[in-house]
Amino acid sequence: MKKLGLTALLILLTTTAVMIYTHSDSRADSAKPGSIDDPLVTKSYVDKLLAGGSTGGGQGTTQGIETTVVSVNPGEVLLAKAGAQFVLRAGKGVAYSSDANGISDVTDGKDIKSGQPVANNHLLIFPRDGRGVMPDPQAKAALTVLVIGGYEITAAPSSSGS
């Protein structure tokens, strides 16, 4: 009986050792703290990152970029600064461009020419100054536009085209 108890104990210990070894071996594939896959960082690095400071290494920041909700009245044009983004939230708007080029509607993946309608809730990107949106002259109602980046509001030209 004593031999049976020792044999059972030996089997239990062997099984436990194999399970522990297998479990620790499966963790060998995961990133080790401090390795290139899981680097350690300092508290000051994290604080700087959370505060919006630049961390170098080619990573950009959103520091200095403002998001604003702008109301554009009939007779006005909302002109984007280079790199700005607009989302027409309310109202009926048309594209405005001071040259032959239009504005990029990245939601639909198309170019909107000056005077053409701008769909609500579509992301518009402006690579250069001189382009924007204005209320549809036929609608005679204000627009509400979410603006990311720089902009200015000016008087609309006598026609919606250039």
Rank of each mutant, 00 (worst) to 15 (best):
M1C: 11
M1A: 15
L6I: 07
T16V: 15
M19H: 08
I20A: 09
Y21Q: 13
Y21S: 13
T22R: 15
H23L: 15
K32M: 12
I36T: 14
L40M: 13
V46Q: 12
L49I: 07
L50F: 11
A51H: 06
G53C: 08
S54Y: 07
S54A: 12
S54F: 06
G57D: 09
Q59Y: 15
T61Q: 02
Q63H: 14
E66M: 10
V69Q: 12
P74V: 04
V77L: 03
A82T: 03
G83L: 00
A84D: 01
F86L: 00
F86T: 02
V87Y: 05
L88R: 03
R89K: 14
V94A: 02
S104V: 05
D105S: 00
V106E: 07
K113V: 11
S114W: 00
Q116G: 12
A119R: 04
A119Y: 04
L124Y: 08
L124D: 00
P127Y: 06
D129K: 10
D129Q: 10
M134N: 01
Q138C: 01
A139Y: 07
K140F: 02
A141L: 14
A141H: 07
I148F: 11
A155R: 09
A156D: 01
P157L: 00
S158Q: 13
S159W: 08
S159D: 11
S159E: 08
G161V: 14
